[in-house]
Amino acid sequence: MKKREQSYNFDRNALINELMIEAKVANIPLDVSCYISKLVADDVERWLNNRYNITELDYRKAVKEAIKKYNADLAYIYFNRDKIV
């Protein structure tokens, strides 16, 4: 992925951790959040297959689509956490 001319690799565990934290904020039970996070990570990994260079915007869009499929509240808080103030 590219972010302002910086490249970094997809980190599945980091994504799962982020989603688990946000799920706790959204009052989603732990087992459900764990299951959803893994499903989202799988979806994103599948989407990333055969794509070598993508922008962060594309990546975020893919993550958003994946989360929206499983839990709307989680998608809302994950993508609005930087828009509270």
Binding site: I21, E22, K24, V25, I77, R81, I84, V85
Partner: peptide, 18 residues
């Protein structure tokens, strides 16, 4: 006014997760 309220939510958001 909304800054206090927003910061309170921000604090709660980051604290509940940790």
């Amino acid at each position: 006014l909304q800054v206090n309220l927003g910061c309170f939510l921000l604090l709660y958001h980051s604290s509940v997760g940790k």
